[in-house]
Design a protein around this nucleic acid. Structure first.
Length: 724
RNA sequence: GGGCGCAUAGCUCAGUUGGUUAGAGCGCUUCCCUUACAAGGAAGAAGUCGGGGGUUCGAGUCCCUCUGCGCCCACCA
């Protein structure tokens, strides 16, 4: 207890944050005691915020919730493991660097040790991005993330989070790369990781494959084009009898491999087993039956292209069709005329779209179809959902590429059921969030694609043997021993080889890809807990913290972070990675619209912290019920500010009377009543916190505090001042 | 098409297994610079708990249904 002489006349909240930040740091107040065994530990799998700009008020909101839980657990005697990290690898960072500096990575460029990046503001708007080598680009990513991370740390400290900074990690850091590569190699050894050459959703701007979890549907304008295919006459020539389809992607006509209608559709039953000729390109394709064809849609018969959408992929696979892919990794139609187009007219038509983007090609094809009379009527505009990469600006294309996958139940019923059942091992707060998990796992339609054709990430830690012609033999995967991790296959050499065998026939080549950022952040429990890291006392930490007690996170990343963490833990440890998952709500702007940068309504945390003070902001945050979307409410922050001042003044009153005499026991009825009430408040708050309901605990405490001030203090005043 | 959430005073929200006249804060009205606090205190007005139906002695709370808003998921040619 402070001595009475230290009580200021006019207690103030100003500067209180700095004082306590320094005190906590000096005293190592929140340092985790790593001698405590698992039963005495409360471990938190803190979300590492994405380093791609600044922290959002939403972070302040949800991180405060977790901090109240951490502080409660500490108060009841637990050693709280409360680490923090920065998620700085991956495409989000690369995009940020591109935006800030105006460069782009070109792996074919040589390293330039003297390169200094311009800042975007100094680059003319119409100037094209400056290509730099991969090492230069990675260096830039490190520099810029470091700047952002410094700012992040300042805000988190200012917010008073009781994290243990000695466990700070980054997802591009050595520990993360090591854990990520180790887990991958073990997935590989157990058959949970595999590579496959298959149609893949591909972002043609970022030039990388993306996973199902990173896709989103957007309603965009499109148009139905009614196009006539020509029936094949007995002599093999196209006849005038036409078969009409509706398509939103006429530009893919050259990739058409078949027609498909529902097996029960009487309109098309006579045509099953026959062939038709495509318009413009005059390619002969079969008419087939498949139950996914919807008689209600368009004309009831569709063209199958490789690949216009995911249904095409299903048809292609299940009907065992050949592949006629034309859109390449650059998002443009192949420049060479494909060999399945044989007629002169077909060659001529293809020359019109060679090298074009899908959008350009569509325009041209429509012109050609109109000219040839094979397009019936005008295009009918519609709005339809199209798949985008969540951070992308152009629709995803489907391109056949070799990629790495981790099994997540998307193609495997028993594994899917096992992962759904893992949801039972976790207590969900609020409980209904469980449905989102079940929903997502139940709806998976493929395994988890983890390879990315990008640069700032954890390398896929394998090499491939090159055959006598210098071509990679992908089924001969060369792996490093775990003692070599972290490693980079583009500079490290596999055992039994020398570096001069890199890229030469009979030698080896490193996998050029990096892992998806979720493939690393799915291991935050392992990274923060120093899984398998030898620190003199091997693994002294991990078994004290794993499985963690709590995973706090936003409900929007159940499909990504929560699920992927579950997958990795299930494979590696055979259990759920935590006992509780607490899902926080969204932050809405004061008009209750979802905040977004494009709307320009983002409130920066630092301004609010400056204006109202940490306690006021934390008060506002803690008033938001678990899982409930909450508006930014400066009124609530003002109340928090007043409450803080009230607390200081009430403390001033109480502390002003000094310590009670040693051995003194309360005997006045009013005192005993107050203490009894306090006991019930403590009990109720404990119940609230045990169920991760910090808001209920706050409400109870606040109510008690006002009663204490308004009634109890007023009633004891005369006694306190010695007036009877 | 499937799933989930929300709807309570002008505003933002509590209301835990159904139980006396439905609560808080902000805002509003009136009064008070009283020695912890005017960045405060005291008092007051204000709601047919989204509509309809049902179960019950009793429903904001449980069941059915409808409406509106929001979110998640889906093979959307």
């Amino acid at each position: 207890m402070e001595h009475t002489t230290n009580i200021p006349d006019k207690p103030s909240l100003d500067g209180i944050e700095t004082r306590w930040m320094q005190r906590w740091e000096a005293d190592a107040t929140y340092r985790f005691d790593r001698t405590v065994s698992r039963e005495g530990v409360f471990a938190i799998d803190t979300p590492p915020p994405t380093v791609s700009g600044s922290l959002h008020i939403g972070h302040v909101f949800s991180y405060t919730h977790t901090d109240t839980i951490a502080r409660y657990q500490r108060m009841i005697g637990k050693a709280v493991f409360y680490p923090i990290g920065w998620d700085d690898n991956g495409l989000a960072t690369e995009r940020r660097v591109q935006n800030v500096t105006g460069v782009r990575c070109d792996p074919s460029m040589p390293f330039d040790p003297d390169f200094t990046a311009p800042f975007r503001g100094d680059v003319p708007k119409d100037h094209r991005a400056i290509p730099v080598s991969r090492p230069n680009f990675v260096e830039l990513c490190r520099e810029i993330t470091h700047l952002d991370e410094t700012a992040f740390e300042a805000i988190i400290r200012r917010l008073g989070l009781s994290v243990d900074w000695s466990f700070l990690y980054t997802t591009i850091g050595e520990r993360a790369r090591q854990a990520s590569q180790r887990a991958f190699l073990r997935n590989l050894a157990r058959g949970e990781a595999y590579q496959q050459d298959a149609p893949t959703l591909y972002d043609i701007d970022e030039r990388t494959a993306v996973a199902q979890a990173e896709m989103e549907d957007r309603d965009v304008p499109g148009a139905y084009h009614q196009v006539a295919f020509h029936r094949t006459a007995p002599d093999g020539e196209a006849s005038p009898g036409d078969l009409v389809i509706d398509t939103t992607r006429p530009e893919l006509l050259a990739s058409c491999v078949a027609m498909v209608a529902h097996p029960d559709d009487p309109r098309y039953q006579p045509l099953f087993g026959t062939t038709v000729h495509t318009p413009l390109f005059e390619v002969e394709v079969p008419v087939l039956a498949h139950h996914l064809a919807d008689p209600e849609k368009g004309t009831g018969i569709a063209m199958i292209c490789t690949f216009g959408d995911v249904t095409d992929v299903t048809w292609w696979r299940e009907l065992n069709l050949s592949s006629r892919a034309l859109i390449g990794f650059d998002g443009r139609f192949a420049t060479e005329v494909p060999d399945w187009i044989t007629s002169d007219a077909g060659h001529e038509a293809y020359a019109q779209i060679a090298g074009l983007s899908p959008k350009q090609a569509q325009k041209r094809i429509v012109e050609l179809l109109t000219a040839s009379g094979e397009m019936l009527g005008n295009a009918r505009p519609i709005t339809h959902p199209v798949k985008f990469y969540e951070r992308g600006s152009r629709p995803l294309e489907i391109v056949a590429t070799r990629q790495w996958y981790i099994r997540n139940g998307g193609r495997d019923e028993p594994l899917r059921n096992a992962l759904v059942a893992r949801g039972d091992d976790v207590a969900w707060h609020p409980g209904y969030m469980r449905h989102r998990y079940d929903n997502w796992v139940g709806g998976l339609n493929g395994d988890w694609l983890i390879s990315r054709q990008r640069y700032f990430g954890v390398p896929i830690p394998v090499w491939y043997r090159l055959d006598g012609d210098g071509n990679p033999t992908y089924d001969e995967v060369l792996v490093p021993g775990e003692d070599r991790l972290p490693m980079d296959p583009s500079t490290d050499t596999p055992d039994g080889f020398t570096n001069d065998q890199r890229g030469v026939p009979g030698g080896f080549i490193g996998d050029p890809d990096v892992m998806d950022t979720w493939a690393t952040s799915s291991l935050t429990p392992q990274i923060a807990g120093e899984w398998e890291i030898s620190t003199g006392a091997p693994n002294d930490l991990f078994h004290r913290v794993f499985p963690y007690d709590l995973r706090p996170q936003g409900h929007d990343i159940i499909r990504t972070w929560l699920f992927s963490t579950m997958v990795r833990s299930h494979h590696e440890h055979g259990c759920a990675p935590w006992h509780h998952a607490a899902l926080s709500g969204w932050i809405l702007d004061p008009d209750r619209k979802k905040m977004s940068k494009s709307k320009g309504n983002v409130v920066t945390p630092i301004d609010l912290l400056e204006q109202y003070g940490t306690d006021a902001i934390r008060y506002w945050a803690a008033c938001g019920r678990p899982g409930v979307d909450t508006a930014v409410d400066e009124g609530q922050m003002k109340i928090g500010r007043k409450l803080g001042t009230k607390l200081l003044n009430a403390s001033k009153f109480v502390l002003g009377f000094g310590e009670p005499n040693a051995g003194a026991v309360p005997s006045e009825a009013i005192d005993l009543a107050m203490l009894a009430r306090l006991r019930s408040v403590v009990a109720e708050d404990s119940t609230g916190f045990d169920g991760f309901d910090y808001a209920r605990a706050l409400e109870t405490t606040e109510q008690f505090f006002w009663w204490f001030c308004d009634d109890y203090v007023e009633l004891v005043k005369s006694r306190a001042y010695g007036i009877h």
